[in-house]
Simulated scan of single mutants.
Amino acid sequence: MVLMRTFLLLLLLDFFLVLFCAQKKTPMKSSHIASWPKCQQNTSVANIPGFQTLPQHIKDFLYYRHCRHFPMLLDVPDKCGGADKSGEVFLLLVIKSSPGNYERREVLRKTWGEERLHNGVWIRRIFISGTTDSGFEKERLNKLLELEQREHNDILQWDFSDTFYNLTLKQILFLEWMERNCPNARFLLNGDDDVFANTDNMVEYLQGLKDNDGRQHLFTGHLIQNVGPIRGNNSKYYIPVQVHEADSYPPYCGGAGYLLSHYTALVIYKMSKSINLLPIDDVYMGMCLAKAGLGPVSHMGFKTAGLYIPSKKADLYDPCYYKDFLLVHRFLPARMYFMWHKIHDPNLKCGDSSNH
């Protein structure tokens, strides 16, 4: 009898120990966490002609191209106040950020990414991320994002490798999240964490649109057209025929930053379900638009290739050059912080030199 009681006591102790460990390993996040089985490699792609001659990162992309679902590590399902109240968010800032880019995220939280009421409407912020590195370093970076989440509640993270070739996957995972948690946010800025975005100007531009409160098509930024895949394998943007056969791309906007309506975001997500992933995320957005019979339009306020200053003697970071633009790529964190405060300085004086 004593042995039986001891045995039952040990079983009970084991149960609580397992339960405790499981709780300790569960990241701090919300109740709605998508759980998917690990995606299996599609080995049949090895039969594609010329596959064995491709660089390893292209092979890896093709092996896992079909994978669309990954476990969420961090979630903020109530970011927009819930699906029903998400229409109260006027501009949702969707910022692509790798785990190690802590300084960039911190500066954005204090500058153009600050969650605030501007011109009577709400701006909200979310960072989207995967995982990087491996072993102890991967654990450390995941813990860093967890700590940031605890303080700021502004990170979506999935358990996939956060690489250049997975940027499109990151976008699709976000759009799936948006459809579920934030379907009615009026407009979105989709951008990188190293752009200078004048979000005040963006709100004013969007408020000035006629007959569009987010329920009509809008996709605007730095328009790129009449280009096609780069076939040289020494380029970062190398796309072999095994990935994309056509020699041309549809019109698209530079991926460093563009504005779109919630209507268009949901159309893109719907179209993406029947279009194979392409590693170049901004081109892929253009492909989804084209399939829907829609297109992007140019906005001169977006400078995703950087800002051209004609004079060699001019200060490249004179705030008068930047105060009227919507977005400029690319900025270091310290310069971002400086520029945001300078363009909001009530004593800033810009004469004719500001009209560039």
Rank of each mutant, 00 (worst) to 15 (best):
D162M: 03
L147Y: 10
W122G: 00
K312T: 11
Y205K: 15
R150T: 14
P37I: 10
P346H: 10
A256C: 09
N142Y: 03
L223Y: 08
E151Q: 15
K210P: 05
E115R: 14
V76M: 02
A305V: 05
H222V: 00
H57N: 13
L189K: 05
Y263Q: 03
R150M: 14
Y321Q: 02
M285T: 04
K312W: 08
K303Y: 11
D194L: 09
K59W: 03
V195S: 04
N153A: 13
K210V: 11
M271D: 04
R186D: 07
E151C: 08
I58G: 02
D14E: 13
K79W: 01
T132R: 11
P250S: 12
Y284C: 03
D162T: 02
S161K: 09
G87W: 08
Y237M: 13
V328N: 01
V267P: 00
G306F: 10
D84F: 09
P279D: 11
W340K: 02
D193L: 09
Y102S: 10
H222I: 00
L74P: 01
F20E: 14
H329E: 05
M28S: 06
M300K: 15
D281N: 10
T220F: 01
E146L: 11
D247P: 01
R105W: 04
W340D: 12
D281T: 01
L266P: 00
F136D: 12
A185H: 05
L92Q: 11
E245K: 13
I155D: 00
V121G: 02
S248Q: 13
D247A: 06
V243Q: 05
Y165V: 05
D84L: 11
L266K: 10
L188F: 11
S134Q: 13
R104T: 04
W36M: 09
G295E: 07
I95F: 07
N184F: 11
P296D: 04
L145S: 05
M1A: 14
R215K: 10
N153K: 14
Y64C: 03
K313H: 11
L223P: 04
N234Y: 09
L156S: 04
Q52R: 12
L332A: 09
D352Q: 15
H262D: 07
N184Y: 14
L327V: 05
I48D: 07
G351M: 12
R125Y: 01
L54C: 10
S30I: 00
C182I: 07
K25V: 06
N142W: 01
A314Q: 11
Q242G: 02
E146T: 09
S134C: 01
Q157D: 01
E148I: 07
G81Y: 01
P333L: 11
Y322I: 05
G254P: 00
D247E: 10
C288S: 05
A34Q: 11
L259P: 01
L209Y: 07
S235M: 08
H329N: 14
L307K: 07
W177F: 14
L19M: 14
C288L: 06
P333F: 03
T304D: 07
A256M: 13
K342P: 02
L117R: 09
L167T: 08
T304Q: 15
V94W: 07
T264E: 07
D213H: 07
